[in-house]
């Protein structure tokens, strides 16, 4: 996980690697919009499984799968458990009691701590959303050279400053993980054992011991970077990059992706108008039913 190689894009001979960066970004945008727009657990699960399948196509390494699995498990169960504990909508069904309302002090103070079934389900939907975005984001990260991304952003006339920030953050990601490993190693050499106890106080103390050095080093690196780019006349030159025309099949793919986004957005708007009592079109009843049942 702390290996820099795991985080940086590596070349490979797979359809995902060969795909033009513009198609990848269009696909990413489509997935993100659908992950936010879809409300049913079924289509979200389908989208999530598809995004995981893309990693198989991209032949992600075992180390990368390991990283992905850690993030997904933490996100999935963390969201589900937190929603299950703090769900406050009605109806809600208690499926377990962690702290009885009659328990002295904490029970009386909190009114009891329960796990709610509807909270678990709501958490699962949220986790699928974030899991899908994370999976697709990492896929782009691991299969695309940041220079190509920068070129693509500039080709699309993204402001140079914004494009630079996005790419810098991507470039910094492996560096931060590598620095975390360095800090851990340094702490261990000084006799510190962060995982020796499960005490929350100790974990908080560990977080401080680890985070402060990383933050300090990041700030120092950012200052150096700022000085470096300023001295080279950042943003004063021609910030437009020209990419070659996409081949025809990829152009069709791009148009198809945008058509899917457009159709999805239109359906969502139509359904929202009906749901909020603004406009209902009886002739679209089939569309409403499809949206209610499947999306």
């Amino acid at each position: 996980m702390y290996n820099r190689q795991v985080w940086e894009a590596t070349p490979a001979d797979t359809p995902i690697h060969k795909m033009d960066v513009r198609i990848k970004l269009a696909l990413l945008a489509a997935v993100m919009l659908f992950a936010v727009g879809l409300e049913g657990a079924r289509p979200l699960f389908f989208l999530f499984v598809c995004s995981l399948g893309m990693h198989f196509v991209a032949r992600s390494s075992v180390q990368r799968w390991q990283v992905l699995a850690v993030f997904l498990l933490v996100g999935l169960w963390g969201t589900m458990v937190s929603q299950a504990l703090f769900y406050n909508q009605e109806p809600r069904t208690m499926i377990a009691c962690l702290v009885s309302p009659t328990t002295p002090w904490i029970g009386e103070w909190t009114g009891g701590i329960f796990i709610y079934r509807e909270g678990l389900e709501h958490g699962a939907v949220q986790a699928l959303r974030s899991g899908t975005m994370l999976t697709c984001g990492l896929l782009i990260c691991w299969t695309t050279d940041p220079r190509q991304l920068l070129q693509c952003f500039l080709h699309w006339r993204m402001p140079f400053e914004v494009a630079f920030m996005v790419i810098t953050s991507l470039r910094f990601l492996p560096v931060i993980f590598e620095e975390t490993a360095v800090v851990f190693t340094a702490q261990r050499l000084r006799g510190f054992e962060p995982a020796r106890s499960l005490s929350p106080v100790r974990w908080i103390r560990t977080a401080f011991y680890v985070l402060f050095p990383i933050l300090a080093r990041s700030l120092r690196r950012a200052a150096t970077l700022a000085l470096s780019v300023e001295s080279r006349g950042f943003g004063r030159g021609n910030s437009r990059a020209n990419l070659p025309m996409l081949p025809l099949p990829q152009q069709f793919a791009c148009v198809g992706i945008f058509a899917v986004i457009l159709v999805g957005a239109t359906l969502k708007v139509i359904y929202s108008l009906q749901h909020n009592g603004v406009a209902y079109f009886p002739q679209l009843r089939g569309v409403y039913d499809f949206m209610a049942v499947w999306l």
Binding site: A41, R42, F45, V49, V62, W65, Q66, A69, V70, L72, L73, L76, W77, E121, A124, L128
Partner: peptide, 21 residues
């Protein structure tokens, strides 16, 4: 460790699938 990790992920996905479908 890896086997446990992937096993947990697979089990979580299966549990989710059974719940959703």
């Amino acid at each position: 460790r890896m086997a446990v990790l992937f096993g947990l992920l697979a089990m979580s996905l299966v549990l989710l699938a059974i719940h959703i479908f």
